[in-house]
Design a protein around this nucleic acid. Structure first.
Length: 183
DNA sequence: CTTTCGATGATCT
DNA sequence: GATCATCGAAAGG
């Protein structure tokens, strides 16, 4: 069973909460996401296809990886349909698999600091440009179905200046592994 | 608790 | 040349 990526990024962002994401067996439960769409001024896809965002305009169910601020690799899941330009940014995981590997990569043993933030996920899971465009239902990726229902909180997206009024950030209410609290 | 700031480099104008 | 979907350390209340 895999998530259904052929929906709006807002729907997919909520649907993904509670799924477990692994890269080469390392990862945890998705507890925070953000939606980005093509008519959304904050989205990389807003101005149409470019060299960087090409994967966002490819088929859904693939990884879109980009380098943020010159040093942080961030992971997105492409959604909607081929050519559309929508994706969901993974913002925080609750670490469950391969804690030792993540601790080594992150240079901390505090579970809270392993993967609570998009750049931290990238470092903890070993994300890099080589993963850009790869399908999410095949190795090194693995997605495990949620075991429990989750209560969803929403709020404004973090770190953007355009389309800041949209409340397209979603998270598992009350999770201690969020990158920030919801208001 | 909060705010500020440097690191660091690809991308786009 | 400016911007940027970030992080961590440092400084201030």
């Amino acid at each position: 069973m895999t998530p259904d990526f052929k929906h709006s990024p807002v729907a997919v962002a909520q649907q993904l909460l509670g799924w477990t994401l692994l890269v080469d067996g390392v990862g945890g439960v998705i507890v925070e996401t953000e939606a980005y769409d093509v008519d959304d001024a904050a989205s990389h896809s807003f101005k149409g296809p470019t060299a960087r965002n090409g994967t966002m305009f490819g088929p859904p169910g693939r990884a879109y990886v980009y380098l943020s601020y010159g040093l942080h690799w961030c992971l997105n899941f492409v959604c909607r349909e081929k050519g559309h330009g929508a994706a969901v940014l993974l913002r925080a995981l609750e670490p469950t698999h391969g804690m030792d590997v993540m601790s080594e990569r992150r240079r901390t043993t505090q579970p809270r600091l392993l993967a609570s933030g998009p750049g931290r996920i990238g470092q903890a899971l070993g994300i890099n440009k080589a993963l850009d465009g790869l399908a999410l239902d095949r190795p090194p990726f693995e997605l495990l179905v949620p075991t429990k229902a989750v209560e969803i909180a929403s709020g404004a997206r973090i770190g953007i200046t355009k389309a800041a009024e949209l409340r397209w950030r979603f998270g598992v209410a009350g999770s201690p592994f969020l990158s920030r609290r919801f208001d």
